[in-house]
């Protein structure tokens, strides 16, 4: 690993000033489960690392004013341990459980996962179907970005120079709902998703669908949401919906799966997730966190 200067600011103000000063030659450090691997491999070689773990105001996880505020320092383990997240944001809870393994989840953060912006980011589909908002701070002030506009390419986001994501805001849903995140990997142990699908069913037959690992960025499948809107979910309807859902994605072949397999599995997992969400909405689905593949 190349040598670098290490800063651990104690306030956000200090952090934004540092990040503004060092720009592209610096990297922000949260859990480090992605960044330290990239630095060890020599893929990323910053001159400056700014560790955000000293900033108290980023250590936030609370439901306030109709939003769940997930501060940048919040780890996946903390999300899993939170009863608020489990009860009111169960898709985020479920997705968190399927990320890597305990030893990674204890350090990795949701904000870090989103900012790494890999196509297979497990937390992204859950945030997409819950209409999350990314809050970024910089010397210029704060900015709110809908999660659906946040990703622009593999490992690329809309963040501008000097912007630090301070938290993710997820709106509460007042109506009854059910949701699910299904991750298809090569096996049940720690793996990256070959296909990840989150769905949300809200009473009154409103649905949301999002994918990861099957497009350059995690995507929301809005066309199929429109198609399903107002309809009761049946096997027949899902068969009709599948090709519409798949229009949102454009998988590639790589060492983890072929394009064809990803395409086919996206349909299978979409249908399975949707059925699960509806069952959960009705109160008789499998428990959140159960393995459905």
């Amino acid at each position: 690993m190349k040598e670098f200067d290490y800063y651990k600011p104690l306030t956000l103000k200090e952090a934004t000033a540092l990040y503004d000063r060092y720009g592209a030659s610096s990297k922000l450090l949260l859990g480090g489960t992605d960044l330290v691997v990239l630095m060890s491999d020599g893929v990323v070689n910053p001159d400056v690392v700014i560790d955000l773990k000293g900033i108290e105001e980023l250590k936030r996880l609370e439901l306030k004013d109709g939003f769940l505020h997930i501060g940048a320092r919040t780890t996946f383990s903390e999300l899993i341990e939170s009863s608020v997240v489990k009860e009111k944001f169960p898709i985020i809870w479920e997705a968190s459980r399927f990320i890597a393994s305990v030893g990674i989840r204890n350090k990795a953060t949701l904000v870090g996962n989103i900012c790494s912006a890999v196509p297979s980011a497990d937390s992204a589909p859950a945030l997409l179907v819950r209409d999350a908002v990314v809050v970024a701070a910089s010397e210029e002030g704060n900015r709110e970005i809908p999660i659906s506009e946040f990703f622009v390419g593999p490992r690329k986001t809309v963040l501008k120079k000097g912007e630090i994501v301070t938290e993710i805001k997820v709106p509460e849903i007042k109506n009854k709902f059910g949701g699910s995140y299904i991750k298809l990997g090569r096996y049940s142990g720690e793996d990256l998703a070959q296909v990840g699908v989150a769905t949300l069913a809200v009473e009154g037959n409103k649905y949301s669908v999002a994918f990861c690992a099957v497009a350059p960025v995690p995507v929301r499948a809005t066309e199929v949401e429109e198609f399903l809107k107002g309809k009761e979910i049946t096997d027949e309807l899902l068969n009709e919906a599948k090709p519409i859902a798949l229009k949102a994605i454009s998988p590639i072949s790589d060492v983890r799966a072929s394009k064809e397999y990803r395409m086919r599995m996206s349909g299978v997992v979409f249908a399975r997730s949707m059925k699960t969400s509806v069952l959960r909405l009705e109160g008789n689905g499998p428990e959140y966190g159960d393995r459905l593949v």
Partner: peptide
């Protein structure tokens, strides 16, 4: 072990060479 057309290994790590875990 997967190789590219030039004979380079594509999965020289546990990210992509999967050995059984306690769940499998």
């Amino acid at each position: 072990v997967k190789f590219d057309k030039n004979g380079r290994i594509l999965n020289p790590n546990f990210t992509d060479y999967k050995i059984p875990t306690a769940l499998d």
